[in-house]
Design a binder for these strands. Structure first.
Lengths: 248, 248
DNA sequence: GGGAATCCTTGACGTAGATCAAATCCACGC
DNA sequence: GCGTGGATTTGATCTACGTCAAGGATTCCC
């Protein structure tokens, strides 16, 4: 996907030249100019670790295109991914010195970064940036708690279905709607990265994907390209008592 | 524990008559008066459900004394606790209509509640309340992500040790320090509530507690009263590469 | 085209923790 | 003191998922 596509499809704020829903949905023109003055872009390749846990972070950033993970590693190597970052998602905590997690690009990735010090000053002058950050953080907290239910109580099959549903939903938001609850997308994660996010092994991930394919819940073309013929069926498999409200 | 003890030991803001770290650490006297005007207390018994997921919530609140859980339940009854609330913790999201989780008192509980509408208005006039809320939410997000590592990758024994370490740390903050890394506290949770928080069954919880006792990591008096002779040993069992920095 | 590096799939088998089923403990009311 | 009911412990067995191992598929580079 090109940057232009993101600019075209991401939720935008009208006047903002970079259109970060993250920070500028309610920005005035002069605030946008201030943001522009402290921003810079960085791009990364799939597989690259952008930030190591414990690193000093002198910027905050939002994802322009691509997907990244937030990952924790125990001393003995056990790995758990604690967050997925899609375009428009925000990384970094104002007021924090050091990164708490590894941030890893799982696809080619473009980030829009803001130097932390001036960003914090701008926050001080511009209350709605802080408000927006609070909203986003609360949303992330909800997502983390939903994932806790998945990690603690769902079966391997339900976990895979849940992940596919979420990736599809986030990805499809960037594309035109397909007819009749159908959904088509590319998995932005390797089997191993999926396993680390779901608290499984990559073998179990592979087996369950094969099973969902055998049962007609999904279709696969290659290893990454997924077609979901019936999104509601997928949600049932995910064990969500949730809405299913994506395709109304 | 009495309310007076909480008032005495909880982080306080000096001038605040109710001493909620949650909302008033930086409040001016007139702001405290405004908070006082919209607050009311509610008390609950152990086991009571304060709020059902989906209920309309017309207040936000902070815990004065006791412990509560935030719990998600799937259609088929599988249950996952996604948060533990100790004294000074905050519940409720400004700008949200309905509760996303069941809130259950696991001990007798006293809450200090603020009517939501006026609380939001006060937030609008008083930026540091929003800032404080952002900080607290970010802390909760960190805690949720640490718990994701636990749920996804830790063994049953490590899960139990982690829970004991956290409960001990929170509880001990309210009491005088014991000599030489020793720690004494009462578990505020039944075995079943522990299981729901750890993604285990109550039988496994019971077995692992017995094992930790047999191995001398903890001592038990009755079912609830725990003595940890060596906190660092407990942290090792928890598999945390963390500091261990509670008893410096 | 070949080989080699990744990534993925599939099979055989082992095990941590779940499930099912009794006890046992303990607080509380009478 | 005595029964009653919930909470907990413990044992026996089962199973979903992990572990180990052996191929495929795809891409990239020479």
């Amino acid at each position: 996907m090109t940057i232009l596509e993101v600019l075209h499809t991401a939720p935008s704020c009208g006047t903002c030249p970079i259109r970060h829903r993250a920070v500028c949905a309610r920005c005035e023109t002069d605030e946008l100019a201030a943001l522009d003055a402290i921003k810079f872009y960085r791009s990364f390749e799939a597989g690259q670790t952008l930030i190591w846990a414990g690193d000093r972070m002198d910027f905050v950033a939002s994802v322009v295109s691509g997907v990244a993970t937030l990952t924790q590693v125990m001393e003995d190597g056990r790995t758990q991914t604690v967050g997925l970052l899609f375009p428009s998602d925000f990384v970094g905590r104002p007021g924090r010195e050091r990164a708490p997690y590894n941030v890893i690009a799982t696809t080619d990735l473009l980030m829009c970064c803001f130097r932390k010090k001036p960003f914090e000053e701008l926050m001080g002058r511009t209350p709605h940036i802080g408000q927006r950050l609070l909203e986003m953080t609360l949303d992330e907290l909800d997502a983390a708690r939903e994932w806790m239910l998945l990690l603690g109580r769902k079966t391997a099959r339900e976990k895979i279905a849940s992940l596919l549903a979420i990736v599809g939903r986030r990805d499809a938001a960037l594309h035109l709607r397909k007819p009749q609850g159908q959904m088509v997308f590319d998995l932005p994660l390797t089997r191993e990265a999926m396993a680390d996010y779901l608290g499984l092994t990559l073998e179990t991930v592979s087996r369950q994907i094969s099973a969902l394919k055998r049962d007609g819940v999904i279709e696969l073309e290659g290893k990454r390209h997924v077609t979901v013929p019936d999104y509601n069926r997928l949600l049932e498999e995910a064990g969500d008592d949730a809405d299913g409200g994506f395709f109304g």
